[in-house]
Measured scan of single mutants.
Amino acid sequence: EVTIKANLIFANGSTQTAEFKGTFEKATSEAYAYADTLKKDNGEYTVDVADKGYTLNAKFAG
């Protein structure tokens, strides 16, 4: 089991951190699915991958 950390950075400057656990593939998929649920209210996002894929920095356009 691994933990994927998602740093969510919103256009207004606020941030949120979420963690997803499971296999690498499952946890990564859940992190992206969570970011997708936030698109409606926060706009499209881009992701910078860090820490060999164990940290995802998602920046929302607003």
Rank of each mutant, 00 (worst) to 15 (best):
E1S: 11
E1V: 13
V2P: 03
T3Q: 04
I4D: 01
I4K: 00
K5W: 09
K5Y: 11
K5L: 12
A6P: 01
A6I: 15
A6E: 04
N7W: 08
L8H: 02
L8N: 00
I9P: 03
I9H: 11
I9Y: 13
I9R: 06
F10C: 06
F10P: 00
F10E: 00
A11F: 09
A11Q: 09
N12I: 03
N12R: 00
G13Q: 05
G13C: 09
G13W: 03
S14E: 13
S14L: 13
S14I: 14
T15C: 14
Q16G: 09
Q16R: 11
Q16F: 14
Q16N: 08
T17K: 10
T17Q: 11
T17D: 05
A18D: 04
A18G: 04
A18K: 15
A18F: 15
A18M: 15
A18S: 08
E19T: 13
E19N: 09
E19P: 01
E19D: 07
F20C: 04
F20K: 00
F20T: 00
K21P: 03
K21N: 08
K21L: 08
G22T: 00
G22N: 05
G22A: 04
T23Q: 07
T23G: 06
T23N: 08
T23C: 06
E25D: 11
E25F: 09
E25Q: 10
E25G: 08
K26A: 12
A27K: 00
A27F: 03
T28M: 13
T28C: 12
S29P: 00
E30V: 05
E30S: 09
E30C: 12
A31Q: 00
A31P: 00
A31W: 06
A31R: 00
A31I: 07
A31T: 01
Y32F: 11
Y32K: 06
Y32S: 02
A33P: 01
A33E: 09
Y34G: 01
A35S: 04
A35K: 00
A35H: 01
A35M: 15
D36R: 00
T37P: 00
T37D: 10
T37W: 12
L38I: 05
L38K: 08
L38Y: 15
L38R: 06
K39F: 07
K39I: 13
K39W: 04
K39N: 04
K39G: 06
K40H: 12
K40C: 12
K40L: 11
D41M: 12
D41V: 12
N42H: 15
N42D: 04
N42C: 15
G43C: 05
G43D: 02
G43R: 00
G43V: 04
E44C: 13
Y45F: 08
Y45C: 04
T46M: 09
V47M: 15
V47Q: 01
V47Y: 04
V47F: 07
V47H: 03
D48R: 08
D48P: 00
V49A: 07
V49D: 04
A50M: 13
A50L: 14
D51Q: 05
D51G: 03
D51R: 00
K52T: 08
K52D: 15
K52M: 14
K52S: 14
K52R: 13
G53D: 06
G53N: 03
G53R: 00
G53H: 01
G53E: 04
Y54E: 06
Y54G: 05
Y54F: 14
Y54A: 06
T55A: 04
T55W: 04
T55V: 09
L56Q: 03
L56H: 04
L56V: 08
N57Q: 05
N57A: 04
A58R: 00
A58W: 15
A58P: 00
K59L: 14
K59M: 13
K59Q: 13
F60C: 04
F60R: 00
F60P: 04
A61I: 12
A61G: 11
